[in-house]
Every structure is written in structure tokens, then in C-alpha cells.
Design a protein around this nucleic acid. Sequence first.
DNA 1: GGAGTTGGCCTTTTT
DNA 2: GGCCAACTCC
Length: 824
Amino acid sequence: MAEQYEHGDTTQDPRVVMNEELNGPQADAVTHVDGPLLIFAGAGSGKTRVIVYRIANLLAGHHVPPYRILAVTFTNKAAGEMKLRLERLVGPEIVRDLWVGTFHSVCVRLLRKHHEAAGLDRGFVIYDDADQRAVVARVLKELDLDDRRYPPRQVLSRIHAYKQEGRSPDDIDSDSYFDDAVTRCYRAYERHLKTASAVDFDDLLLAVLRLVEDPESLAGEDLRSRFRYVLVDEFQDVNHVQYRLVRALCQKHDNLCVVGDDDQSIYRWRGADVRVIRGFRRDFPTANVIKLEQNYRSVGNVVQAALGVIRHAKDREPKELWTSNRPGDPVQVVAADSEHDEAAWVAARIRELTEQGVSPREIAVFYRVHAQSRVLEEVLRSERIPYQIIGGTRFFERAEIKNLLSYLRVVVNPRTDVDLHRIINVPPRKIGATTIDRLIQVADNLQVSLYDAIQPLAEGAIQDAHTGNKPSVTPQIRKNLLAFRDMMEKLREMAREASPSQLAEEILERTGYARLLKEEDNAEADARLQNLHELLQSILDYEEEMKAAGEPALLTGYLERVSLTSDADTLEDVPKVAMMTIHAAKGLEFHAVFLTGMEEDLFPFRSMEPSRNDDVEEERRLAYVAVTRAREKLWITHASRRAIFGQTRYNAPSRFLKDMPASAVRGVLTPASQLMARRPEGSGGFGMSQGAGRFGGGRGDRDRSAGARFDDGPRLAWRHPQQGAMGSAGSASPPAALRNLPVRPPTPSATAAPGERFVEREPDVESDGEAISLRRGSRVQHDRFGLGTVNSIDPGPDPIASVTFSGWGTKRIMVRFLKPLEGR
DNA sequence: GGAGTTGGCCTTTTT
DNA sequence: GGCCAACTCC
């Protein structure tokens, strides 16, 4: 059946390929070659191995030509790893011809082939988020819409959402004025991208999808018959466009193998839909379904903790993850006093680990949001523990880097307005805002790009259609404009011969950008120079790599790589502790993991905007992902007080902690936290009188209750059940207890009846002589701003609350101006 | 026209 | 706490 493939030595016996041990379901997943196949791969169940063997089996066992196999991964890094492992099995020559990559990188490759059919220039550029926002900003101006009423971010996210559903401006019924405005923006946005010969991330997929689904298109026919076997990894995170794309690509043969785990679906916010994997059997009734349920990665206690968390998830595909690994150490749940205390604790444990001989590359620190990383980073730096941060402010987002890249992109494609706008006056060449406004005016009038508007503006030949004005410029400005254009033309000329790195250096020289930075001669400018140097090096690396692969090093190729490289791809294999968000940790594993910030409202994360808070389920899955990254050791930390986003918050431990089985977990207090715990109650001001001291025998674990210390402001009080007080000897280990903490009892201020095991309350806030109980989450009314929700309260003689009002955003208001409402 | 300063904004997760 | 935009001053 298979076409023979004569390239290289593919004659390996499949049994040779299969000589590693695979268990029953794994072997099935490898050998079930034809027809649709759905593999549920639990965390740590050897998924990558199965995919690699499956591909090797297709190549060697079934002699499928490599260029007929498409494997889609979630990150470039995963693709690289897959290729590496395949090379060991079937050799590099064959692997070179395989199609392995992310949806986006595969689509770019296909689009470069069929750019004409897709209506794109050969040199099309990819607009990232910032570029897109710049386009939206320009569009808003053009349509005369107030960017305060229509924040570019919001408009853009709407456009995104439409695109991820595959809807064009024509497919939208707008039933509100806002929607209507967004739709008009969407239309204009599309027009601008087209004029600029630019695509955004969504377009990459949509453009290919349009071709594949077009029965008339020749390019579409090529795409439809191109691949005979399609594999999709991390299938729980595909969105609708991606799913349609996959189906269209294999409509001729149905040899579609998807691998995923609905429990690990964590990208709903960017269009992923778990229902796709859950509904796969409905769409492909003949599909075989295989479940990989044995976890080979983690020690028993980690698996138990993870299972405890995910067991409470709604609507999951039934599966039983299990392991035969030894139980290992219990998962440690660490109560810290503050984020600094937490960071210090983490650093101390990392120090211990490395002293025991654990390599820093086997240690990772996770957090829910990037904002948490700074404190951790500071401590690691002062402790001289080597670390690398994945994500955050990205290298390629630094201004100087974007500038140089913009130059390169304009060289490739002068019509890319966003890039032109960014560099036309960098370094300053006396082309100011007024001039640029005129340039935009001319460009809009003529419906051309900014670059193509330079000449007409300089010549003053244009008349504004509406006002009849002739946008004109002074002779000096005219000279500046033409000089700029001239310089770009020379660079474009040069680009035909020179390598990308030569061109980049030439740009730095010729534009005077390098000189400017050198002359500034301060720390910041030095850092920028350093960064530019790093960029040059990365271009050189790219050229090296292409040379090694026997391919030409094209500037477009480099730019494309930059656009499509994700944070997760930047994890280096070096002996440094890895710090990253949990999202970035997906697919990775470490000997030791620190999961920080395990607190209500941080994890599960609660946004200030109530609208976007329906996703505790996804947070739960995120917690599951986090826990299952650890092979041997897992510390989960939470702090009772944390300064984040410019304010101090007092959060209870995360609800997910209490879902972990007691047998797998051990509670620990940091020294600072113990100190707090021992602090005698009654030392503070008001608010403590009922908060503490009602129950309990005065043991250490009892008085972490909050109200006891007013100087720290209002905080949630909690109390550990007596039962868990193992080991009294002052060790104050809080018990297994943490996991049983009730989070937000139904009536917060209700006095707990004796016998109730926990209390949660916080000091009331006096207001205008009338005692009201305001707390985080309280609904309040303000004369001017209307209804709002309390985020936090700064205590004092005149307490101030941070309150989010719908329509007004977050304001700081004195509590006495707020009227509490019933309910929350 | 340009540079510098202040004020106001938001504040998840990213191919 | 950091970034962007608008405003002011030169």
C-alpha cells in the first residue's frame, strides 16, 4: 500500500525499532496505524515516547515517506525534541523530510509555498501582539473612535475571538453600538494588514484553512492530498480553527491520530476548547480509543496529590491514573508569612538540594503569574543560585530589539506600516509626530502604505479629499524624508547580496543607532548595546544552523523564526534553576518542583473583572498540570500576606490544597510563620477580640488567625483543626490540616458555634459611626461610581478601600463614602 | 518640533 | 510597581 521511499536507509526492521519495552496500551498506540485514533495520555504516561515510536513505525515498518507525515506539536521545543529522538531511531536524513512543528510554523511553511494563492506577498511579515495593537490604535483614530471607550486591547481581543471562531467581519451581526464599532474596526484592521502585506497569528491558520477548504483551489488540492498521516499532540488545547484545519488536511484518508489529556487543558482563554477532544468520538465514530494510564514519572505521593486535585474536576473523561513507583517523600505544603518569607524558604531548600548533589537544571520554581517572579528572582540572585526565567518581558519585546527587527522587516517588506512607524524617527532624524500624522493622512487618502506615501508627501502633490488642504512639509522635512527613503532603498539593494547578519550590522552603522547608544554612555544604553549584540549573535546562530542543514539562510526565515518562537522554547539546557509560569511548564518535568503562591484568588486566580471568572475548573486543571511536573520532590507554598499588583493582599490557602489526600501531604511552617503563630493574641488593636481565642488550646497552630494582628490590616483568619497537630514539640507543624481549611464559609461574619472546627473572619471596619462589615468581595455602592466590588482594604483611622466599579475601573475610596450592600 | 515630566492606567495565562 | 500617553516647557 505505501509508496516506497527510497531516501536513505529505511529498511530497519520494525521489531528493531520496537525493541524498547512498551506496555500493552502503549504498544497498541504505536501499531494501530490506520484510521482515526484517539489516545488519552495521562500525565507522565510516556506520551512522547509513544508518538516517536509511532512515527518510527510508520517510517520503518510501513515505509511511509517522511514528507507524507505531519506531526503537530505545541511548542517548537517539543518539535525539536521529537525530531531528536526520531533521529536516533531512523536517522537524520529521514527526519529532515518529516513535517514536524507547531500549527503556526507548519502553516507558515505551507503559506510560503502558496502565498500567491493566499493573496500574500512573498515577503509577508507576521504581526505580533504589539504590532496588532498599533494597527488597532491607528484604525481607531481613522474611524474617529475614542480609544478610551474602545480600548485597543479590548477591541483587539474581540477581533481575536472572532478570528479564532473563523468569523470574518461579514459574519457578524452586531446588535450593539459597541459591537458595531468593533466590527468596523475589524474590517479596517483587515484592510490595513492586507495593505501592509502582514498577517497576524490567527491569519496564519485561517489563510491555510481557506485554501484547504476551497474545493476549487489548486493549492487547496495540493494541501488536501499532501499528508497521509497526521498526528496532533496536546490535542486538548486545539481551537476550532485548528481542528477544522486538521480535519481538512486528512479528509482523504482519516489517518488522524490525536493525543491529549482533557485533564491538562489549560488554554481555554486563547480559544482552546476541551470539547473538541471530548467530542472526538462523535466526529469520528470509527475511532479507536486508547488510554495510557500508568504514570512512570512521579513518585506515588505526587501522583496521589495530583489525583486528589483532579478528582474533583467536573466533566472529565473517566480514567484512572496509577503508578507502581515507590511513594517517595510526602508533598510538603509550606505556610509562609509573606512572599519574601516564601522566597527565602524556596532558596534555602534549593540550596539544600544542590548541596545534596541535585543539579539546578533539575529544579524548577512555578508561579501562577509573572508578577510573582520578581521577589523570587531577587532572593535567588542574592543567594547566588543560578537561574533562568522563562517568559516575562521577552527579549524580543525590548525596544532596541524591536527597532532593529523593524528595520529588517521594512527591508523585506517596505509596506509594513507598523514597523515603518516604529523606526522612521529612530534614531531621531527630525521626522516628528506632525510629519508622521501628515504621512498617515496621505497614505489613507491614496490607500497606500506609509512608505509609498513618503514620495507624494515630500513632493506636496496631494490634496486632502475632505478638507482640500494640501499636506505639505518644509524643505528641511522634505529633505529628511527623502534621505530616509534613500537610505532604506540602499539597504534593500544590499539585502539582495548580503547575509542577514551583515545587513543587520550595516543597519546599525548606517542609521547611526549604534553610535547614538555608544555616545549615551550610561548603564541603560550599554545594556541596549549588549542586547543588540545578542541579537546579532542569534542571527549568526541561525545562519550557522541553516548552513549545517544545507539550506540558504534567508532573512525572511530568520524573522519568521523570531515571530514564532515562544517562551517555552527558550528554556536552555543549562545547570540553572528554571523559573516559569505553570503554563510554560506544560510538557516539562523536574526532579524537584516548587509550586508557589498556592492561595485563594491567586491560584485559583481571580481577575478583577468579574466577567472573566467562570473558570475555576481550568485553574484546577492547571494545578493538576503543576503538580504532575515533579518527579521526586514537590513543595507547595502559600503566604498569608502578599504584595502583588501594587497592593498587599491577605489570602487563605488555596482550595486545591484541601483536595490532596492527607496521606500524601505534610504541612510545614516557615520559621517566620512559626513566629507569627506563637505571637500572643491580644497584642493588637481592635478586630481580634472575636477573631481569635475562641477555641483551641493555645498551641502554635492556632493563632495564625488573623484578626490577632491589626497592624497587618484586615486579613482572613483561619484556624487549623485540632486533629492534625502531630508532633507537638513546638514544631507547630500545621497539620495535615491545611487541606481541610474551609475557604470562605457561607456566612463570613457569623460567629462559629463551638464544635465547629474552623472560623474565618476579619475585623469589621467602622464607617461613619455605623458598624459595617466590609471585606474583600463585598458589594458596595458609591454615590458617583455606582455599584462596585471591594478588592482590599487599607486600615487606619480612615480606612481606604480599593474598589472595582463596573464602567469606572478600580478606584481607591475612603470607606466612609461606601454603602455596603446585602450579599456579596 | 522635540524633550522631559507628570499623571493615569492596568495588573493571567501566549502561538 | 511599571508602562504609556498626554501635557508642558523649551
